[in-house]
Design a protein around this nucleic acid. Structure first.
Length: 744
DNA sequence: ATCCAGTACGTTTTT
DNA sequence: CGTACTGGAT
């Protein structure tokens, strides 16, 4: 069969694609056709007699895996190549080899929030009170340990400062609780397979032989556990192909270890190395700017990026007066491009360092009617009502899941309060019982009686009844949960307007489950839950919609857009303040900026502003040090004078500042309370008293909405308003620009 | 047991 | 500026 599909490749790409046996390292700069190389190489292997099930391709996000699958399918239909994320592979292996590893096959996967609760509970059971470390801090330390394959015993042995000793103690208790709850966290999904490959020679050999050709995408972001997995699967059949770019490593904070890619040639001495430097994505201008920036990283193998593309428009930095101007003017510029017929909405991406910055964009885009999609955490599944329903499902599948038990045992209210739950826990703990099993034996707990005991009995009966439905389609199980638990009824009976939305959301959850089942009827309820927990934010990104993309720099990795705005290039934001004191962290921030810049194909704008309101404070911003590092070819535009607030806003702020705070400049305290809030408060109090629940009001951005609640007094009086489009919003009564439409 | 209001707290990036 | 928890009132 002629390999005509190779014709369009460059010499370097072809070298990587046609490499069959032995280790291969592909160093691929941005836009150098990395994904293409991986997919083509898979197809090439298939055409040269490698059996599909002998190939394993690993990615970091489901979206990347899905896209790769699609592209391989197009060239080689009906293949059965295993393409998945590291975490999905981990789950599959752990469920398959559960017995051998001493795990219960029905384990629940705990997400970030669950883990923190678990750490909290572990801290309590260690009897550590008055800890000055937050559960989150300790959780991060545990996660880091797991990424380095350190189990509690080995971690404790190495703990030689107070913090690590506290962590060691909590870590051990946490692990015990996780086993008792039959739960695994995200890190376990990599840690357990990695340890199994290290310790079980037979298992390792079996898997190594099964997966003879292993490909790893974004190798620069692998942590030690992932490294051990890739290595373990490539000993007897060392056909490991890794693809990555050290300059795009942006997950150090999650345990990624750059040494994995830098030392690949040491680990596999006979490895072939192919470097892809030709960029097919960006203009010369964009590439030169990005290249100029990344050259400032010291710990780096230098590599020059080249492109045969056009010179293109100059890259520009744009200065605005305030963050509001920044958002408004970007929206206006996008609308102008559309009006001129030069672009579609989907041509634009606005990238931010921190999710909090998407808020201002949302307001501006809504106001100027720019369609947009914000790629951020799966807000839908994180809503209370959906989490509640999911907790029911998790408890049905895994009765030992105490976190889920606590979440729903009194949801809807069954008369089971804190006191009763304390008794239940005090009964369960010494007997090594799960809360669920303790509740089964509620008769034996004399402290729990009356309404609480009846409530627990009802709850246990409910779970028992529901469990008989587990074999049904996921959406049917959810419907049964909602109806038999009285959850839906309680929502319907409530006169809280928020609960109306909740009904809608929960119904949407049923739809999601239904679709999931339709796509592949073999998939079970457990698969549905797993899918939700392992989903990432980028997965929800729909590139077919004609919308402006708003997302974090991390989420943007691997994507490309004709026009990119990189927002808030200011000290403290990009680079982030937590990185300012450490060189290594600072280099990662620079790589993050590099990733953002290289997403652009034709136009790139780096924006910053003088004043930014952030967490309720207005700060003077210092331009990002990265802006100074850009080559001289980058243009500088000061758009601050033409902004809606203009320099007047600055003056207003300054004059207010004179009374609010003194000597801010001298002390280096750039943070100062917004001057606007105080003087205005007194004048507007009279108006603020006007709002009443049930009123219809008009807001200049969100349109007409209904007042759902009014709380607080004077300047702190708040109105909660429900808008059809944007949901619930809260405003300070005397600050919000509202007009009353109807009093009832 | 439940509800609400007031307060303390912490705010990067995510499988 | 939010959210999450606590402590008081019902």
């Amino acid at each position: 069969m002629p390999d005509s599909f190779l014709d369009d490749l460059t010499a370097a790409q072809r070298e990587a694609v046609t490499h069959v046996d032995g280790p291969l390292l592909v160093l691929a700069g941005p836009g150098s056709g990395k994904t293409r190389v991986i997919t083509f190489r898979i197809v090439h292997l298939l055409r040269h007699g490698v059996r599909p099930w002998q190939i394993l391709a690993l990615t970091f996000t489901n979206k990347a895996a899905g896209e790769m699958k699609q592209r391989v399918d197009r060239l080689a239909p009906d293949n059965r190549v295993w393409i998945s994320t590291f975490h999905s592979l981990g789950v599959r292996l752990l469920r398959h080899y559960a017995d051998r590893l001493g795990l219960d096959r029905n384990f629940t996967i705990y997400d970030q929030a669950d883990r923190v609760r678990m750490v909290k509970s572990a801290i309590e059971s260690c009897g550590i009170d008055n800890v000055r470390f937050t559960p989150e801090t300790i959780q991060t330390a545990i996660s880091k340990a797991k990424n380095q394959l350190l189990l509690p015993a080995r971690y404790a042995a190495k703990a030689n400062d107070f913090f690590s000793q506290v962590v060691a103690q909590v870590y051990a208790a946490y692990e015990k609780k996780m086993r008792d709850a039959n739960a695994l966290d995200f890190d376990d999904l990599l840690l357990w397979p990695a340890l199994a490959l290290q310790n079980d020679a037979e298992l390792r050999a079996e898997l190594d032989a099964r997966f003879r050709y292993v490909l790893v995408d974004e190798y620069q972001d692998t942590n030690q556990a992932q490294y051990e997995i890739a290595k373990g699967l490539s000993q007897d059949f060392p056909n490991l192909c890794v693809v990555g770019d050290p300059d795009q490593s942006i997950y150090k904070w999650r345990g990624a270890d750059l040494r994995n890619i830098l030392d690949f040639e040491k680990d596999f001495p006979n490895a072939r190395v192919v470097t892809l430097t030709e960029n097919f994505r960006s203009t010369k201008a964009i590439l030169a700017a990005a290249d100029g920036l990344i050259a400032h990283n010291v710990k780096r193998k230098a590599k020059t990026l080249v492109t045969a593309n056009q010179a293109g428009k100059p890259v520009a930095t744009l200065l605005f007066e305030t963050g509001v101007d920044e958002a408004e003017q970007i929206a206006a510029r996008i609308q102008a491009e559309l009006a001129a017929g030069r672009r579609h909405y989907r041509d634009f991406a606005v990238l931010v360092r921190i999710t909090a910055l998407t808020r201002g964009l949302e307001t501006a885009f809504l106001r100027q009617r720019v369609p947009f999609q914000i790629v951020r955490g799966l807000a839908f599944f994180e809503r209370k009502e959906n989490k509640d329903v999911l907790a029911y499902l998790r408890l049905l599948l895994n009765p030992r899941d105490d976190i889920s038990f606590l979440r729903i045992v009194n949801e809807p209210a069954r008369g089971i309060g804190k006191t009763s739950l304390d008794h239940l826990q005090r009964y369960a703990e010494p007997r090594q019982l799960s809360l669920h099993d303790a509740a089964v034996a509620v008769e034996k707990i004399p402290e729990i009686k009356g309404k609480a005991a009846a409530g627990l009995r009802n709850f246990i009966r409910l779970m028992h009844d529901l469990r008989s439905l587990l074999e049904h389609a996921p959406d049917e199980v959810i419907r049964a949960v909602l109806e038999r638990s009285g959850y839906l009824e309680a929502l319907a009976a409530s006169d809280d307007r928020e609960d109306e939305d909740r009904v809608g959301n929960v119904k949407e959850l049923i739809t999601a489950a239904h679709q999931f089942h339709q796509e592949d009827p073999n998939r079970t309820l457990a698969d549905f839950l797993e899918n939700i927990t392992l989903a990432s934010d980028v997965d929800s990104w729909d590139d077919k919609q004609n919308c402006v993309a708003v997302m974090t720099l991390h989420a943007a990795k691997g994507l490309e857009f004709p026009v990119v705005y990189l927002l808030a290039c200011e000290q403290g934001i990009l680079p982030h303040e937590r990185s300012l004191n450490q060189d290594e962290e600072l280099e990662e921030e620079r790589r993050l900026a590099f990733v953002g810049m290289t997403r652009a194909k034709e136009e790139l704008y780096l924006t910053h502003c003088r004043l930014r309101e952030f967490r309720g404070q207005t700060n003077y911003q210092i331009p990002s040090m990265f802006l100074d590092e850009l080559p001289a070819s980058v243009a500088f535009e000061d758009l601050s004078a033409s902004g809606s607030g203009g320099p007047k806003a600055l003056d207003r702020w300054r004059s207010g500042l004179a009374t609010a705070s003194r000597g801010w400049y001298e002390t280096g305290e750039f943070a100062a309370r917004s001057a606007a809030t105080k003087p205005r408060a007194a004048a507007a109090t009279a108006d603020a008293a006007v709002y009443r629940e049930g009123m219809l009001v008009q807001h200049e951005t969100y349109g007409v909405g209904r007042v759902t609640s009014v709380t607080g007094h004077g300047a702190l009086r708040k109105v909660k308003i429900h808008f059809r489009q944007s949901g619930e919003r809260t405003f300070l009564a005397d600050k919000a620009r509202l007009t009353v439409v109807a009093k009832e």
